[in-house]
Computed example of a mutant assay.
Amino acid sequence: MEQDPLSALRDIHLPDPGGFWPPAPGWWVLFALVLGLAVWVVVVVRRKHRRNRWLKTALAELTTLAAHKQPDPRWFNELNRLLKRAARVKFPQRRPESLSGEAWVSFLTETSPRQTADDQARFRSLVDSCWRPNPESNPQQAISAARRWLEAQRC
């Protein structure tokens, strides 16, 4: 009994498809790039948050001062101190805490590019109100100018 040798051959078949693991080298490169980008974004966001932490604290203190506003030299002095503490954090090399009078008004004006001439007058009035027994400055305008100055310092 002779058999046909061709009948013993099997038909052509494709190999089983590969699994999803391990991924191809291109996917590893893409994963590394995405991971690096995610780490970079987290570092940048944390750094920015850390740099602006003082601003959040200063704005909270400003809100507290605004809730208790009164045309009193002590109140204007507290607002002035708040601005000096914030300026010391933002501009430590310029030593703003040592400034007073017209030098302090000039510093506030030149360090905030969005301020107007009206704000310079408000800053001058705020500084003068710290020393006058009966301040003529409007507390609401002083708070408004201080808030704009603080928000202009955001990194």
Rank of each mutant, 00 (worst) to 15 (best):
I143P: 00
R147V: 03
R74F: 08
R46A: 14
L37W: 12
E102N: 12
H13E: 10
P25I: 06
W149Q: 04
R47W: 14
F107Y: 14
N134R: 15
H13G: 03
P133G: 06
R88K: 10
P5V: 01
A8K: 13
N134C: 07
V42Q: 13
R53G: 09
L108I: 00
S106H: 12
N77C: 06
W27C: 01
L14S: 04
E151F: 04
R51I: 07
F20C: 08
P5Q: 02
D11Y: 09
P15C: 01
L62T: 06
L62A: 05
L6T: 13
V105N: 06
E61K: 13
W131I: 06
P73Q: 05
P133K: 07
Q70W: 00
W21G: 03
R85G: 03
T116R: 07
L82Q: 07
A24E: 13
L79H: 02
S125M: 01
R47L: 14
E78M: 08
R81C: 09
N80F: 02
Q93E: 13
E61N: 11
R85H: 12
P22E: 08
M1C: 08
W104H: 06
L65H: 05
Q153V: 05
R53W: 08
V45L: 15
P23D: 05
W149T: 02
D4G: 10
F91G: 04
R132C: 04
R122A: 15
E110A: 11
P23S: 13
L126V: 03
R47A: 15
L33A: 15
G18R: 12
S144F: 06
A38N: 06
C155D: 14
P15E: 07
A60D: 15
Q153S: 14
S137Y: 00
A8I: 02
L30K: 01
R81P: 00
C130L: 05
D4V: 10
L99K: 11
P73T: 01
